[in-house]
Amino acid sequence: MLGLLETGSGFWSAIIWIVVVLVIGSIVIYIRNKGEDSYKKNTEQDKPFISGNPEKSKEESHLGASHIYWGFTEALKGYYNPLVKMHTGNINDYSGWIIVITVIILIMVGVSG
């Protein structure tokens, strides 16, 4: 069949996947369209709830890229600080890394026989 990719321990077919997604998706849409009984239009249910804080204007509410994954980078500080420090941007270090890795590989290839 067209689109059947053998991976050695199974197969992958994008066509079958799309058919499955369409079937599941139509079921989901059907359930969603049945609606929710407790919802009433034009009440406080329509308004966003920000823990009691006043709602900001739309232009101010956009979250900049630096704020995203703040917790992730904060938690992994011990990993990130040395890593960022390693990227010095100094051309001496760039060539230094190449020489060091070349020497390591020369030794590895030479020793392995």
Binding site: G89, I105, L106, V109, G110
Partner: peptide, 30 residues
């Protein structure tokens, strides 16, 4: 032979560097 090993040991890191392998990747983002 021993010389072929040296040639291999020179070719692998420099070509990997041109491909952007860590830790010789610093030129790539720049």
């Amino acid at each position: 032979s021993q010389l072929d090993k040296i040639a291999l040991g020179l070719l692998i890191p420099v070509l990997a560097m041109k491909a952007g392998a860590v830790p010789m990747h610093m030129w790539t983002p720049d």
